[in-house]
Deep mutational scan, measured.
Amino acid sequence: SEEEIREAFRVFDKDGNGYISAADLRHVMTNLGEKLTDEEVDEMIREADIDGDGQVNYEDFVQMMTA
């Protein structure tokens, strides 16, 4: 549901600035027990970053979650 997606976005957007940065993503993945290299984190950001601004905004996140 849209509310679940919004809630998930809030979990990833640690600093609440409306964007998921590589640092935000790394933090959440580490908490989930996933040890990722910087390259892996950057690749995840690139794949999710639809508009190419280097971070994942809510619209990018929705597209990723509903793809």
Rank of each mutant, 00 (worst) to 15 (best):
S1H: 11
T37A: 05
I20Q: 00
D15N: 14
D51I: 11
G33W: 15
S21P: 06
D42W: 13
N57T: 07
D60I: 15
D60K: 15
M29E: 00
D24M: 08
D13N: 01
E43I: 14
F9A: 02
F12V: 03
I50D: 04
V11Y: 07
A67L: 06
E39V: 08
K14W: 09
A23W: 04
D60F: 15
R6S: 02
Q63S: 09
M65K: 02
T66R: 12
D42L: 12
R26K: 10
D42S: 10
A67Q: 13
D49G: 15
D15L: 11
D51L: 08
D42E: 13
R10M: 07
V56N: 00
I50A: 10
D51P: 05
G33A: 10
N57D: 04
Q63I: 09
D38A: 12
I5D: 00
R10N: 04
D38Q: 12
N57Y: 15
R6M: 06
D51T: 11
T66C: 09
G16S: 06
V62W: 06
V56T: 02
G16K: 07
D13K: 00
N17A: 06
G52C: 09
F61D: 00
G54T: 05
G52W: 09
H27R: 13
V11W: 06
G54D: 06
D13Y: 01
D60Y: 15
N57G: 07
S1W: 14
G18P: 00
M44T: 02
D53A: 11
T66D: 03
H27P: 02
G16L: 07
N31A: 14
A48I: 12
E34N: 14
A48H: 11
E4I: 10
I45S: 02
V56W: 03
R46A: 08
F12T: 01
A22F: 13
A67G: 08
M65E: 01
A23F: 05
N31W: 15
D38V: 11
L32Y: 12
V28M: 03
N57A: 12
A48R: 11
D38T: 10
L25F: 13
K35G: 12
E4V: 10
R26W: 07
G16T: 03
S1R: 13
A23S: 08
D60E: 12
S1L: 11
D15K: 09
M64E: 03
E40M: 12
V62S: 02
K35E: 08
D13A: 02
D60H: 15
V62L: 15
Q63E: 05
K14G: 04
E39Y: 10
T30P: 01
A8R: 09
D38C: 07
T37P: 05
A8H: 06
E2R: 09
H27Q: 13
D51G: 12
F12A: 03
T30C: 09
I45R: 03
D13G: 01
T37I: 04
R6V: 04
